[in-house]
Amino acid sequence: MIELFNFILLIILIIVVIVVAQIRDLLSAVILFTVFNLILSLLWQQMRAPDVAITEAALGAGVTAVLLVATISKTRRQER
């Protein structure tokens, strides 16, 4: 059961990464990047690395999103 859960999480992770690379709207890209970090944090916990999972959840899903949104609000939102 938990292997199926991990497999579904990995599939969602790959789809989200491809969408982040392809999307034109930068704010949507930042939000999807946060989703990517959150799923990756769950996967780190499943791979028995809770230390990395805590750091990934706090730094990747929290601080990086705030800094990237601040950068977007200082520049433009659409990718050229």
């Binding site: 809770p50 805590i54 706090a58 929290g62």
Partner: peptide, 10 residues
């Protein structure tokens, strides 16, 4: 689990 880096980040 955790440490200086993780706790400082939180």
């Amino acid at each position: 689990p955790g440490g200086g880096f993780s706790g400082g980040t939180v």
